[in-house]
C-alpha cells in the first residue's frame, strides 16, 4: 500500500459519495454543487493518473463552465416549486435488471482477464508533449470537434430565439 494507492482510494470514496449525494437530492442547486465536488475529485484523480493537462481542463470546463450553465438554467426556470416524484416500483424493475446485467458482465470481464491485476506505474504526460501529439496524430478529429462546436453554437442561438421574432 503506497501513498499513491491511499490517495486513489480516498479520491474514489470522495467521488462516489458526492455523486451519490448529487443524484439523490431533490433540490437541484444542491445536486449541482455536490456534482462540482465530484468533478474536483475526478480532476485530482486525473492528476494522479498522469494527465495534468486534462485535470486542468476538467476543472475549467466541467466544474467551471458546464455546472455554471446548469445553475443559470435552474435559476431561470423556477423549478423549485415542482414536486418531484420518483418512478413507481414496476418501472424500477427494468432499471434494476439492467444494473444487475451490467454488474455481472463487468465482474466477468475484470475477473476473467489476469492483465487487469497488474499495478499501474506512475507516469505523467507533459502538457507540451501531449499537445504536440494531439495536433500531429489527431488534427482531423480536432478540426471536426471545432466544427461540431460551431454547429452547436448556431443551433443554440436558433433554439434560444423567441418565436415572435420569426414573424
Amino acid at each position: 500500500m503506497t501513498l499513491y494507492s491511499i490517495i486513489f482510494y480516498v479520491l474514489a470514496v470522495l467521488i462516489i459519495a458526492s455523486t451519490g449525494l448529487a443524484i439523490s437530492r431533490r433540490n437541484l442547486v444542491h445536486a449541482v454543487v455536490y456534482l462540482v465536488i465530484s468533478f474536483f475529485g475526478v480532476a485530482m484523480l486525473f492528476y494522479l493518473l498522469g494527465a495534468p493537462f486534462l485535470a486542468a481542463l476538467e476543472v475549467i470546463i466541467y466544474a467551471g463552465a458546464i455546472m455554471v450553465l446548469f445553475l443559470f438554467i435552474i435559476m431561470m426556470l423556477k423549478v423549485e416549486a415542482f414536486e418531484e416524484r420518483f418512478f413507481p416500483i414496476r418501472q424500477w424493475l427494468p432499471a434494476l435488471g439492467m444494473c444487475v446485467i451490467f454488474i455481472v458482465a463487468g465482474a466477468f470481464m475484470i475477473l476473467g482477464d489476469p492483465d487487469t491485476r497488474i499495478p499501474l506505474k506512475a507516469a505523467a504526460a507533459e502538457p507540451v508533449a501531449f499537445g504536440h501529439y494531439l495536433f500531429q496524430a489527431h488534427w482531423l478529429a480536432i478540426e471536426i470537434i471545432s466544427l461540431l462546436l460551431l454547429i452547436v453554437l448556431v443551433a443554440v442561438l436558433y433554439l434560444g430565439k423567441r418565436k415572435e421574432q420569426y414573424k
Binding site: S5, F8, L49, T116, P119, L120, K121
Partner: peptide
C-alpha cells in the same frame, strides 16, 4: 505503483 487497472 498506484493501484491495479481493475480498480480504476
Amino acid at each position: 505503483m498506484i493501484v491495479p487497472y481493475s480498480h480504476v
